[in-house]
Amino acid sequence: MLYRTSFSPPAWRYRNPFEEFENVRQKMENLFGTLSNRSYKSMGAGVFPAVNLTEDQGCYYVRAEIPGVKNDDLELNITDSTLTIGGERKIPKESEEARYHRRERKAGKFSRAIALPGEINSEKVEAALVNGVLTVTVPKAEKVKPRQITVR
């Protein structure tokens, strides 16, 4: 007998299979606090900025938290299917006689390439920087967008 399935095999997703482990790790770390002093590098191998990539039917959305980076200090490039976020985070100098109590913020240059999982329309990429959060909207190429077929 022949069986035909009307479903395509599950498409390969770029979803992080270790996300659940990551959550557990974070909880454990909270629990044990400073017992383990080594800093854990998350998926992006510690390359600034950390990005979140989401998609809907028409677009990919790349989001990154880059507080303190001005529009002018940010450079975005897009090639075939690679988005590059580069720039510099500057922290204004404090006066000479100031002594510091906390110094947790870092300044420096950064550059990161993000490979998008599918074909895109690089003509219509849009980017917005609001309250230190960068959102890049990358439309998918017309031919990979799902098309609704009306049945007559």
Binding site: E65, G68, E97, Y100, R102, R103, E104
Partner: peptide, 22 residues
């Protein structure tokens, strides 16, 4: 949030990274 806190004779300056907050 990550912060920097500086103190001078006259004031205390605090910078905090809070991306996404309006």
């Amino acid at each position: 949030p990550h912060v920097d806190i500086f103190e001078t004779e006259k004031d205390i300056a605090l910078s905090a990274d809070m991306p996404g907050v309006s």
